[in-house]
Nucleic acid binder design. Structure first.
Lengths: 163, 163
DNA sequence: TGTAATCTTGACTAAAAAGTAATGTATCGC
DNA sequence: GCGATACATTACTTTTTAGTCAAGATTACA
């Protein structure tokens, strides 16, 4: 259960665009530089994001990328879904061992876990917008108040004034 | 954000062992057959699980594997952690782009999301034991009542007698 | 004691994901 | 129009993950 490179970097590129003012753009080169990526790699990521309608691109001199919608209206679940190619749909089709279909097809004890887990993650991500990730790490942490209360705040329960 | 092959198959092998009665064993060949895996692949997975202390092995004729503890005392978060090699710890170290360290080291807007997400998943998994995954898919689904209420039951909110 | 069954382990191979390169297309400014 | 700049797209290479193979070690039982 890990966040893939594509998810991580794609999200980071979007966040760079979220920092822009209205009518501002960033070129691929600028995005790549700010995220420590190669221009080629950033290009591929932005292409995916563009195809999915999350960013708008302008070609030619003076061109660049910006968000297709305000950062307050882009939720992380949508972003992850795009960068992930709907992983849940392919799960049972992928993990078939040496056979053509999973032996548990139709009656699988762990499928409810996979589905439920995916749902939990989606739910947490759908409560967060790109706009909420702008700012310092400490501020973002506070803003998220630990993802809709699904996760505990660091101090709850063990809170002490000075430890 | 996807469940890897190692997590999926490892969990499935453990679940096979959870079905055993006391003092029963399964050989690699049996496990492989029941899960549609090659014997070699099952061997590697069980080796990992054995190293981690989740299963006990007996060598020689009449040998095989069984759970090291009762299925009621093995929680999924422990299993996933073993099959995953603690993915959270390596996250920021892995995704550094073309640089030696992530440009956001020390102040990262998305790190709280990664950490929070991991925590949400861990929390959901820690509420489920192997024993709860025994039975038909429908029964398991009911038993989990959608992972500690973190996820909605299928009928809640839209429930109707006949639709 | 010997042999067949079974787990153990590390090296090897194959498949998938990640990342790069190269070629093409659009736009701007002269 | 022409060249410079920047996005678009596909093919290719590298790296990581997944999976296989083969030789070794342990045990039961005749």
């Amino acid at each position: 259960m890990k966040v893939s490179a594509q998810e991580e970097y794609g999200l980071r590129c979007l966040l760079q665009l979220a920092y822009l003012g209205k009518d501002e753009f960033l070129t691929l080169t600028q995005i790549a530089e700010r995220e420590g990526l190669s221009v080629a790699n950033a290009g591929k990521l932005l292409w995916i994001l563009n195809k999915a309608g999350l960013v708008t691109s302008i070609r030619g001199t003076k061109g660049g990328y910006k968000l297709a919608r305000p950062a307050t209206e882009i939720h992380l679940n949508e972003i992850i879904k795009v960068l992930d190619e709907d992983v849940l749909a392919g799960h049972c089709k992928s993990y078939t061992g040496v056979l053509d279909a999973c032996v548990h097809t139709g009656n699988c004890g762990i499928r409810p876990v996979i589905v439920g887990l995916h749902d939990v993650v989606q739910r947490a991500l759908s409560g967060i917008t790109l706009a909420q990730l702008i700012g310092t790490e400490a501020n973002v942490e506070t803003t998220l108040h630990w993802i809709q209360g699904l996760s505990r705040p660091p101090q709850a329960g063990t809170a002490r004034k000075k430890a």
